[in-house]
Design a binder for these strands. Structure first.
Lengths: 351, 351
DNA sequence: TGAACTTTCGAAACAATTTCGCTACCGAAA
DNA sequence: TTTCGGTAGCGAAATTGTTTCGAAAGTTCA
């Protein structure tokens, strides 16, 4: 008799035995049919739970892998692809699959949060990683309500306290960049940052301001320009700075990321401004862009790869029900000096 | 008797009837088991095809949203992320999800093709896009056996005739690049290509050779160097070319892709060789790398974004059972002249 | 030649799902 | 109160698909 639940793996028949219903009824419960009384369903579900029953479909895939949703704003940047490769890296180690989507900067309209969350539950996805994208608190709450683990990397908006976020020490990075320029004798240092409201941008800005203020250098509003994290912003930003009266122009620029810095570089070349002789430039991110540009960019390196890994690790931990100590994971940034910074013109090096 | 194939929906038993084998055997074929003779399998597959059989799993998920598996070799390149963004683009239009994985250049060891194919069937995935990665014919066959649509983008090995591949007009691109250099008066033109066996590399090489030969310029084996599609290969390649006796050194280099060209650029700068004054350089791919490098690279632009879109569109068509006319989709390349090419030293421009 | 494998396949046992009809209960009409 | 149509809940049986295991045929090697 093969119906004995003491048998190796639980079968529908065994569950039926246990609960005193027929096999078809159990089958219906498993498949979510309507024609089962609530009471009966509850009883069967309890037994299924206890016996750890898995449908044949599940059996095949359960031992294999979970699926993690990853949502990017856009993947057309070194930043994005480095983070992504960190995620994929860890995914292959941990044996989970990565379901990738991009919002294209849309305010998550296409995301259709409700349906998405439902699908994730239906298909037993382990959780979700949101990169940079601006999900509203309402969206995040919708996932939290359903107990779907969510980790945010470099959130644009500060997430609610109970959503875990992964980022870098942006403040220290900003401060290190500004201090480096101050050390080189620069006093008029511009900040060509990212979106004003973005949290990471705020942190970098305040690190920069903190460095200036602690050296008694005044922060000039004209030298702080926000915009997008894109090359064009660098081009326009430099143009704007050069339209200032000559004595107010900066001798150094701290760019909010490498793409902006590359834009500055491009516009500077077009105008015949030499970097670093006439203008020092520090980027942020430390992507391949920084290494490959000419001159190679001094940049604050973010451990993007590791941030991706950390994010996925955290999601998987959550999905296993482990307690997470901290709601904010920050990995260290590091200033890497290359060729785009030099002492202020008119100042002797080492002076 | 319910075995009659004239019945409503096709069943395994009906197929078995038709082909004169047993039900279990048909089941095995459907599930891609190995213990079925090739001949028997073919017969059964034909019957399955004709009857339009669908497994219960397929039946259930067919109506839902599809998932497409995308396999990259690596995503750390402009090439990869541009193709990927094309895929994601179309995915969001078509309402399918993208499951991304990277092989990391492993010979598909981690891929575990059998299990993967099974999962794809179980979960009703629409199909698979393989980018650049070197899947063996055996792997591809394993998917074909289970009638999982597969499209390969820029395959390293020429795929079996019945696997659809998407690529660009590499031959014409190679020819256009070489002709451009010939037009500028160059006669000693090196080709710093990709992996020798890679199909796209072969096509570019032969385009280049064809251009040279049609102008009566000899193709010199010393000036053709194969390697990886990576920056380092550019550095090493230029070093090798410069180790030739002076009168044998090339005055122009056609690089197999932009990354290689950037390597050449870097090494040239280190050695004080001016591009394009001393050395003309043409890249391939037309990624952001080409635009951002200094000097901006003349490059053969591939419509990478569109290739991604086309690949996904083709997979989805296949999965809907539409007939695909061609087993090879080629999108047009275009030579974009920027700053890295100039007339051969000693030749007057326009002369 | 024959022993030891391998390959290929199907009978039979299993597992799961679907169909269909029985039963019990409910509320309205007689 | 009785009757009757409707319906929700359930399971028997039929149907569909999968797995196990051994038989038959072929292959390799001594």
């Amino acid at each position: 008799m093969s119906l004995t639940p003491s048998n190796g793996k639980p079968t529908l028949a065994a569950i039926a035995r246990l609960t005193g219903v027929s096999t078809p009824t159990v089958s219906k419960v498993v498949n979510g049919r309507e024609d089962v009384a609530a009471e009966t369903r509850a009883k069967v579900l309890a037994a299924l739970e206890e016996a750890g029953y898995q449908s044949p479909g599940q059996r095949r895939t359960a031992s294999g892998t979970g699926v993690v949703d990853v949502v990017f704003d856009s993947i057309n940047s070194n930043y994005a692809s480095t983070v992504l490769s960190g995620i994929l890296d860890y995914a292959s180690e941990a044996g989970v699959e990565v379901l990738l989507s991009v919002t294209g900067g849309l305010p998550a309209a296409r995301l259709d949060v409700g349906r998405r969350a439902q699908r994730m539950l239906d298909e037993g996805r382990a959780g979700m990683i949101v990169v940079t994208s601006s999900l509203t608190d309402a969206h995040l709450a919708s996932f939290r309500r359903r107990r779907i683990p969510v980790v945010v990397i470099d959130p644009l908006n500060p997430p609610p306290a109970d959503v875990i976020s992964v980022g870098a020490t942006n403040w220290s990075g900003g401060r290190a960049a500004a201090e480096h320029l101050l050390d080189l004798g620069h006093r008029r240092i511009a900040y060509l940052g990212g979106p004003e409201s973005a949290e990471c941008n705020q942190a970098r800005l305040h690190g920069y301001m903190s460095a200036l203020m602690s050296r008694g250098v005044q922060v000039l509003p004209d030298l702080v320009i926000h915009g997008k994290f894109r090359t064009e912003h660098g081009v326009e930003g430099l143009t704007k700075l050069l339209s200032l009266p000559e004595q107010e122009r900066p001798s150094a620029i701290f760019a909010g990321n490498d793409a902006i810095a590359v834009g500055v570089l491009r516009e500077a070349r077009r105008r015949g401004i030499r970097v670093p002789e006439d203008l020092s430039l520090v980027g942020f991110d430390g992507t391949a862009l920084a290494e490959d540009s000419v001159p190679a960019l001094t940049s604050v390196t973010q451990p993007l790869h590791d941030m991706g890994r950390a994010a996925l690790r955290t999601v998987l931990r959550q999905s296993r029900g482990e307690q997470i100590d901290s709601h904010r994971v920050e990995l260290a940034t590091q200033l890497v000096v290359r060729e785009s910074t030099a002492p202020r013109p008119g100042i002797r090096a080492g002076g």
